[in-house]
Design a protein around this nucleic acid. Structure first.
Lengths: 144, 144
DNA sequence: CACAATTAAGTTGTGCACAACTTACCGCAG
DNA sequence: CTGCGGTAAGTTGTGCACAACTTAATTGTG
């Protein structure tokens, strides 16, 4: 008779653990900025280009409005973004950075290095890991 | 002036995305068993050996009692586990499998294959990924 | 033009994560 | 024997994820 699947053999658990460990490394740094990790991700997207619609943000991050709407409300309460109902299409809400939101990108620059330092992997290994994870995520999405 | 960090360069985001994609693949299968992914993880540990204390489960999974206590209450409500206050040490609660909980390990055997099928990676690549993630998680925990 | 199908955003409800705190119990030093 | 430090489990509060649903605006088709 087959064995029950073992926890330590599961790629899925390895992903789940690594992901939580990585955000745990970011947490104290992000605390200083007053951001959670998902909020930081939204800010990353906006720092690249703004304004963005909620749907658009969701496309980049793989999140839906059920997650983003309250998150964006909190970012607005923090004074980092502004939500403006689009004039051309009143279904859309454009997310703009405020001056405070824009200026937060400075202190945020140092954050990724934190993970690299804590990772105990070479830059090559990190690069390869990122590539493999990208392929994996794409394949998993394709299988749904 | 340095660029703001880019989303698509971040290992942390790659981990976060891959982890969510992997549990999304498991979700429909686990739905049939009536389990969430974290509940499935707890069952995996118990199928290896039981009874286990809450602290012990937390050690295996990296979760604290704040997460596990309500989760275990839900597993108990499903009739899969029983929580018994230890007689020798009344601080401890031993988590036992019920007959129903034990018999669920049969249907659960097929689950990991699902991810392997959906992953689009060879068994070798999956093995190497798991190893790298293990090293990464250990290093990240060590850095805290 | 009318109106059904589609789409954007938001809401509601459940279940994690995790911090901070509480409660109850153990074990040990005096 | 008496506390007292430490420990196991549980509780409370916040913030994601995600499913299912609602609302309001737009688009496509006859």
């Amino acid at each position: 008779m087959t064995e029950a699947p073992r926890l330590d053999r599961q790629v899925c658990f390895a992903l789940y653990s690594a992901s939580r460990a990585a955000t745990a490394v970011y947490r104290p740094v992000l605390d200083e900025l007053g951001l959670t990790y998902p909020q930081y991700l939204v800010m990353l997207v906006l720092w690249e280009s703004e304004p963005r619609g909620v749907k658009e943000l969701g496309g980049e991050l793989g999140l839906d409005s059920g997650t983003l709407s309250p998150l964006l409300k909190r970012l607005e309460a923090l004074g980092l973004v502004e939500r403006r109902r689009s004039v051309e299409d009143e279904r859309r809400v454009a997310i703009h950075l405020t001056a405070a939101g824009r200026s937060l990108s400075g202190p945020a620059r140092a954050i990724p290095q934190r993970l690299a330092d804590a990772a105990g992997l070479s830059l090559d290994e990190l690069e390869q890991l990122r590539t493999t994870l990208g392929k994996l995520t794409a394949a998993l999405h394709g299988s749904l």
